[in-house]
């Protein structure tokens, strides 16, 4: 059994004149000590999916309309919040893309790291501050002893993200959710932060859910991958399945639109034409229909179901239907 298993999640937001179907079928899971990457372009529902797990969806306007999220078999979504609240922040912790907006500007960094330890773990103030310093040392912040007394504005972007990680791992969570933790950082600092996450994972056997739109980061970090598009997980599998046996046209499209650097290889980028659909007026059929080079008649009005391509490798696309005769070379069909 997976440590955290999300099944068939649906989330919508009430907006003027209707609703936005932000998540329309997201299933993914992560094992202890492993990393799941959720990849997809902006607006495809990555953040809303993990916010749902964290109980961060404001209701109204937001509403989880279907699905479950089970941690060690116990549902932690929505209504059963009593269960959920205890777990979140201690057993599941989250770090955000923009650390500045999730830190309190009027409190020292040390006090902010110490707070959850005092609240959830019953540490005394002194114990908690000592632990805060240790945590900053673990996240490789130089001069941790003096840094714990400083305020967020005195930190650089890379140091802020490290402090966020220190805060998130303070209560030794079994799942760490990181929503684009390095998107705002330079590649050099990104590398340091990713290495740090891997080191912490090794020592704590923590599961990581890493949200990104960068396939390079996916390739570096992930054991498993969920590819999201227009609110749905369109392909799921082990990292090698996703890269070397891509089964969904969107995954193939993303790969061909990004440059790779293999020595000697002459490369040509193939852009995906058009733009993602508006989820206010979510498409009736396949979400990728208007951009898909393999689109068939059936795809326009009938949403594809999820097909098992291999063991533990799934794709939401009609090309995998046994009656589909279209010959495609780039799509993996065993």
């Amino acid at each position: 059994m997976a440590l955290l298993e999300v099944s068939d999640l649906h989330v919508e937001f009430a907006v003027h004149g209707g609703s936005v179907q932000a998540v329309r079928g997201a299933s993914f899971s992560v094992n202890e000590g492993e990393t799941l990457a959720i990849v997809g372009e902006s607006g495809c529902g990555k953040t809303v999916s993990v916010q749902s797990i964290m109980g961060l969806i404001q209701t109204p306007p937001g509403r989880i309309t279907r699905g479950s999220a089970k941690l060690r078999g116990h549902d932690i979504l929505g209504g059963q919040a009593a269960d959920g609240r205890e777990i979140r922040g201690t057993d599941i912790a989250m770090i955000f893309q923009d650390p500045m907006s999730s830190l309190n500007p009027t409190m020292t960094v040390g006090a902010q790291i110490a707070e959850p330890l005092i609240v959830h773990r019953g540490y005394s103030h002194r114990q908690a501050m000592r632990r805060a310093q240790e945590l900053l040392e673990m996240t490789l912040i130089p001069d941790a002893a003096s840094r714990i007394k400083e305020y967020p504005f005195e930190f650089s972007g890379g140091m802020l993200q490290r402090s966020m990680i220190a805060m998130a791992i303070a209560c030794e969570p079994s799942v760490l959710i990181a929503d684009e933790p390095t998107t705002a950082l330079d590649v050099t600092i990104q590398s340091q932060i990713l290495d740090l996450m891997v080191d912490l994972q090794r020592t704590n056997n923590m599961a990581i859910i890493l949200i990104t739109h960068d396939l390079g980061v996916v390739a570096r970090m992930a054991n498993d991958v969920a590819v999201m598009y227009a609110g749905e997980v369109v392909e799921r599998g082990a990292v090698d399945d996703i890269f070397y046996r891509s089964a969904h046209p969107y995954t193939v499209g993303l790969k061909s639109a990004m440059p790779t650097n293999r020595r000697g290889a002459v490369q040509k980028l193939t852009p995906i034409q058009g733009t993602p659909p508006d989820l206010f007026d979510a498409p009736a059929g396949c979400g990728y229909y208007t951009r898909c080079p393999y689109a068939m008649e059936v795809c326009e009005a009938t949403p594809p179901i999820v097909f098992d391509v291999d063991r533990e490798h799934q794709s939401r696309c009609w090309l995998h239907h046994k009656d589909c005769l279209q010959q495609v070379t780039q799509i993996y069909r065993p």
């Binding site: 590649v187 590398s191 390739a219 650097n261």
Partner: peptide, 15 residues
């Protein structure tokens, strides 16, 4: 060297 060495490649084997 540092910049290029930090640049993640979209290729798990290479990574």
């Amino acid at each position: 060297e540092l910049l290029i060495g930090s640049n993640p490649e979209p290729d798990p084997n290479q990574e």
